[in-house]
Design a protein around this nucleic acid. Structure first.
Lengths: 345, 345
DNA sequence: CTGAAAGCGCTTACAG
DNA sequence: CTGAAAGCGCTTACAG
């Protein structure tokens, strides 16, 4: 018996009731007599009937579907967030459409079009490198949108954001308190709002400590290891290299570690490194990485919970700030005054 | 003007044609006069009308939607594969539903139910730790299914698989050729078919080299770094530890590296390590990891292309084998006979 | 080339 | 508590 050919009318015929009654029974309507409902459910079970969400969506004008846009899912932060989103979506009967934009404007246009055509009930945009027209295009859809670690968090819509500034300040202060005076910032040139805030926290910590801001100690990558390695190489070529580096994310910290080791320097003896994210691999770098934990999965939960609230008609603005947590492992230590000597070895 | 309230009839009224004609114009039917079609398209554009994929799906009985099930998306291999799937799905007008099963039988049941109700046109199951009832449940759906690095690849359905046996044999042979005589296998107890095959390749390489198989050199983890570390610890506690370890995946290799370093041993001087996957981080472990590359994204492409073929009515069996590629980096070297001495230090 | 009509498989007021 | 009917927004034979 081909499941896909069964319709509500087939079940109605078998149960000797109208299809309206079957519909009610399936939706647990109190309007249907208990024993009738029971009989219907037995038949539904026996024939493996699955009501069509398509037809239901057309009738109810709700698809119980959300769209999730990411730049790429092949990123442990993004994947963690999406896991969190899907967790609660699934618990509430929502299915999720996943779309990668690849930071490509053409694909962004297609993603928006497909989400509109599929009549998703809501959208979450995660840590995307969005084109200029993208967010306005999305907002035109007239469905709730939640941004996660994205630009325009407050002006534009509802959002879930890590407390970038406070967390970065704390991470930098950790380095300063260890005695570092030359602390570099390895940023992400595509990091948009998050990069601005993390850089801001770094600056604040320097100010509070009365340390001068040295522009030559600020370098940028693209968020990935190779670029972190290159940026680190530039720092190490400086006449007076930093004794510590605060990185925009763990992946670039990974590249930085590689470059430091490739130069024959040691972490944390010669140079301290701090990351951001606390990816599952952070505990397994060599040495284990001091970093700022973002509760990625929980942030995904919050984003979906916010969307759910909006879908239930909440009118308020939702701008959630999630605290980061500094996880001190083994890439940070007091500066070694002999570093210059070792380097020449 | 609320986009979502526009229907094909609104456009028909504005264009002064019947909604049938609008429908044809939008589907580029040759049945409609060029200038009429042009006028309709202008109006569609102007009002930002988006045809409802829901209504279209109901009428055509095709949703242009596929379901992708994974155990977890928070895994760089899985995420790479899903990226590949989405690439070609999107290019062909398909949207993808992503569902995490978390290897939880309850969720598996719900995923299958949701895919059935949403009338996905096809399904791909990626590297899942599937429950016993899962695949039969899916196959009951009567839509094409493609398995990727999954169990039952040939008996059950269409599949894309890495050449586990050949790749593992080559990886092990690499170690043997370096002179290793005590090569361990660090497997994944949930790796099912893939683990069996990788273990098989390891055994074959030993046999070919005339080396004895030593059961005490086979340990298992769960695929993640922490378990790799634990398994490595067991190997190092052996009276005669291995001089090389072939790991089921890069993540466990990461844990193994950590444990080796934590014991004060050096890689590759004291012990060689080989991974499997060539994740983006493999180049950035310390030292950079020798591993077997799986072309994850391309495997995703192949899976979706296979699904497309099946959706076009292909009747043949599709069982695609993808070769792995040994990438030699810096975790492998000839064995060091002084290893025992160093260990006691 | 165009339109009226039936149908896709549901939900839900309305009437009983 | 139950059923007949209308409607959700499309597609597509059928007739012209």
């Amino acid at each position: 018996m081909n499941v896909c050919t069964n319709t509500i009318k087939d079940i109605a015929r078998l149960a000797e009731v109208s299809h309206s009654t079957v519909s009610r029974a399936l939706r647990n309507s109190p309007l249907v007599k208990a024993e009738t409902a029971e009989r219907i459910r037995r038949i539904v079970e026996e024939f493996g009937y699955r009501p069509s969400a398509i037809a239901r969506s057309l009738a109810t004008r709700r698809t119980k579907t959300i769209g999730v846009v990411v730049t790429t899912i092949a990123d442990l932060f993004v994947a963690g967030v999406v896991t969190g989103i899907e967790d609660v979506a699934s618990d509430h009967g929502y299915s999720v459409f996943l779309a990668n934009s690849n930071a490509d404007p053409d694909r962004e246009v297609r993603v928006v079009a497909s989400f509109e055509e599929r009549r998703v009930d809501g959208v979450v945009v995660t840590a995307s490198r969005v084109g200029a027209l993208y967010l306005p295009m999305l907002s035109r859809m007239r469905v709730p949108i939640v941004l996660l670690n994205n630009q325009h968090p407050s002006e534009f819509a509802h959002s879930v954001m890590i407390e970038n500034t406070a967390a970065s300040r704390e991470a930098t202060r950790h380095l300063v308190e260890l005695g570092h005076r030359r602390v570099a910032y390895l940023g992400d040139r595509y990091g948009q709002h998050c990069d601005t805030e993390r850089f801001g926290g770094y600056r604040q910590a320097l100010d509070v400590a009365g340390l001068p801001f040295l522009p030559q100690l600020v370098v940028h990558g693209d968020g990935r290891p190779a670029s972190g390695r290159q940026a680190m190489a530039r720092l190490l070529e400086l006449a007076e290299p930093p004794t510590a580096v605060f990185c925009y994310d763990d992946m670039m910290a990974l590249g930085a570690l590689r470059q430091i080791h490739a130069c024959g320097l040691r972490v944390p003896d010669d140079i301290s490194v701090v990351g951001f994210d606390d990816l599952p691999i952070a505990e397994y770098t060599e040495p284990p990485l001091t970093t700022v934990r973002q509760p990625m999965r929980q942030m995904g939960h919050l984003a979906m919970q916010t969307l759910l609230l909006l879908l239930e008609g909440s009118e308020s603005k939702h701008n959630i700030k999630v605290p980061g947590e500094l996880i001190i492992r083994e890439t940070t230590a007091p500066p070694n005054d002999r570093r210059q000597i070792l380097k020449s070895a």
